[in-house]
Structure formats: structure tokens, C-alpha cells
Amino acid sequence: MTGPTSRPPRRSALLRATTVVAAVVPLCTAGWFGWRALDHSDPAAATAAPPSAVQSGAVQSGSQAPDTPQSPPTSSAPSGSTPTGGAPTGTPTGTAAAPGDTPAPSAAADLTGRTIVLDPGHNPGNFAHPTEINRQVDVGNGHKECDTTGTETDAGYTEADYTLDVTRRARALLTARGAKVVFTQDGDRPWGPCVDERARAGADAHADVALSVHGDGGPASGSGFHVILPAKVVAGKADNSAIVEPSHRLGLLLRDGFHAATGEPYADYIAHDGLDTRSDLGGLNLSAVPKVFIECGNMRNSADARRMTDPQWRQQAAQGIADALTAFLTTH
């Protein structure tokens, strides 16, 4: 180490200049030959590749490739499905399916001119109106309660609150695609409406399709979601013959799209491969437009309850619903 009073001798300006020139000239010459060699051997290599594009807003909440709408197969069971109640093979339970598992229409599909009725199951105010909601109404092949209170998680998160949140999220997605979205209730009614009024909402709105959103109250040991399809009912005031086939097609799209968006497995305590056909629901018996129900999960099951109380998962649920409705309206 050199001390403070012991400096190295200075070189003259001429010597310094000579040294610099001697060092620079060979380097420049070598660089020129290298560039010429590169330029003549591979012109493309001499041009720097542009940086990869970064898409603004490419990732939305609740997506896997993010939020790609799903267009499921037309068969009643998806490719690679497991026995009843299982998720499709290779898809981890409770995680979103990998991108491209099912063909998908564009998330930006134009739904201008289309009308969709969303039916948030139950009503937060039903608890305070037992007389009104217990009134019996005609559903064609029998009578049912006007409405019910719905279920809830062990922690008290109600089905009515869940359905309103998810349908509002789905409405935002569908409206952004140009659709007109009509609600049967938006937390703006003290109770109800009754199931027969909910069923009429599709015809009253001149809707193309309707969907009723629910959370199930099954046995605590059971988990998973399922879609309820209408059975053909021609009895009394009910005749849903015209909507059974398109409703079943909608149900397949919804089952596969919801699973792809959320990773939720098919219900292992009810239904078959995530599908259940029923003739006892006024909302399906009396509907004049294609309609299905979705039970998004079992709120009495601790794992399902954790998912359904997570806002991010609810956004995924809304995405699966919106994408399935979009696929239904743009592929037929």
C-alpha cells in the first residue's frame, strides 16, 4: 500500500497519449473484424430482438390463463373424468385447472343485444319474513314454499350473502362484454321473490338465458359443487319442454367452466359427475327460457366454506359463471 507522501512518479502527457493509442487501436480493430464476421455470417443475429411485450391488465382476479372462458365438450362427462364426485383426472382438488384444458371463446366476446337473468338464491331479509316465504306456490306438478332462508357456514356467512356477491361479480363481467343483465333481486326487496316469480323473470325480461346461483347445505362430510338441470315437466301450469335440451347444454358448459375457473371438485355426496336432474324446482319447471341452478359448494363443509368465504375464490366462481354463459350465447 502506498503511503500519503509516497506517490508514484507521474508520466509525461506524450507518454500517456502514446499508451492510450497503443491500447485502443488493437481493440477497435478486433471489434471491427468481429462485427464484420457476425454481419456476414448471420444478418439476423446482428439485429437485437425486441423485448417481449407486457400486456397491461392481462391477469384478472380468479383466473388461470387468466380467466379464459371455457367451451366444454358436448358429452355428459368431460374427457378424463373420474367416477362420480371426482374432479377430472390430473386436476388437483381445490386448484384452478391448467390453461387450455377446454377450448375457450374469447373473454372479450361481444354479448351486445343479449339479455341474461341472474337469480341470486334466497334473500338476506327472508329470515325476518317467515310467514311470507312459507306460503305455498304452484310449481306445476306440486306446491313448494315461496322461498326459503337458505343455508350458511358454521361461522354464519349466509347463502343469501354469498349468492348476491357472486352474481354481482358475474354481472360486472357480463356487462363489460355488452350483455344486459337483469336480477330477480339485488338485496333491494325485503324478502323473496317467490320461486314462481323467479321463474317468470326470464320471460318478463325477454332473456336469452337464466341462471340461479346457490350454495348447498349438505352433510358436513361432503364437498364439491353441482349443476341442477331441469327434467321435462308437463303438468298443470308447467310445460318446460322447449327449454330442456338447451338447458342441458348450458349445464354442461357451466359445470366444466366453473370447475376450470375454480378447481372445485364435483360434489361427492349428491349428483353424478357434477350434474343433477330434478323435476321438483319451480324455478326450472316454470321457466320459459333455458335455465339451470348451480350449487357452488357445500357451505356446511369446512373446506368448501373456506373457499366460499374467500373473495378471490368468489371472483373465480363469478368468472366461471360468466364464461359459461358467454360460451352458451356465442356457440349456438
Score class of each variant (00 low, 15 high):
3 G>A: 12
10 R>V: 15
12 S>K: 06
15 L>Q: 08
17 A>Q: 08
18 T>I: 10
33 F>E: 09
34 G>S: 13
35 W>P: 04
35 W>C: 03
36 R>E: 07
37 A>F: 11
41 S>H: 06
45 A>M: 13
47 T>C: 14
51 P>T: 10
54 V>I: 11
56 S>N: 15
58 A>G: 12
61 S>P: 14
63 S>R: 10
68 T>Y: 13
72 P>A: 09
75 S>K: 12
84 T>R: 11
84 T>N: 15
88 P>F: 04
89 T>R: 15
100 G>Y: 05
104 A>G: 13
115 T>I: 04
119 D>F: 01
123 N>G: 10
125 G>S: 04
126 N>K: 10
132 E>W: 13
135 R>H: 08
138 D>S: 02
139 V>I: 08
141 N>K: 06
143 H>E: 09
146 C>H: 13
146 C>Y: 14
152 E>L: 10
153 T>M: 01
154 D>E: 14
157 Y>Q: 10
162 Y>E: 10
162 Y>C: 04
172 A>M: 09
172 A>F: 11
174 L>K: 15
175 T>G: 05
180 K>R: 14
181 V>T: 03
182 V>W: 02
183 F>Q: 04
194 C>L: 02
197 E>K: 11
198 R>P: 06
200 R>I: 01
204 D>R: 10
204 D>G: 02
205 A>S: 06
209 V>P: 11
216 D>Y: 08
218 G>N: 06
221 S>K: 12
222 G>M: 01
222 G>C: 00
224 G>M: 03
230 P>W: 01
231 A>Y: 00
232 K>D: 13
235 A>C: 07
236 G>P: 13
238 A>N: 06
238 A>C: 13
239 D>N: 06
240 N>I: 02
246 P>E: 13
254 L>S: 03
256 D>I: 08
257 G>Y: 08
262 T>P: 09
264 E>H: 09
265 P>S: 12
269 Y>G: 00
271 A>T: 04
273 D>N: 15
275 L>A: 09
276 D>M: 15
277 T>D: 06
280 D>Y: 07
286 L>V: 01
287 S>F: 11
292 V>C: 00
293 F>C: 04
294 I>F: 02
302 S>K: 15
310 D>V: 02
315 Q>H: 10
316 Q>I: 00
317 A>H: 07
318 A>P: 01
320 G>A: 07
323 D>A: 11
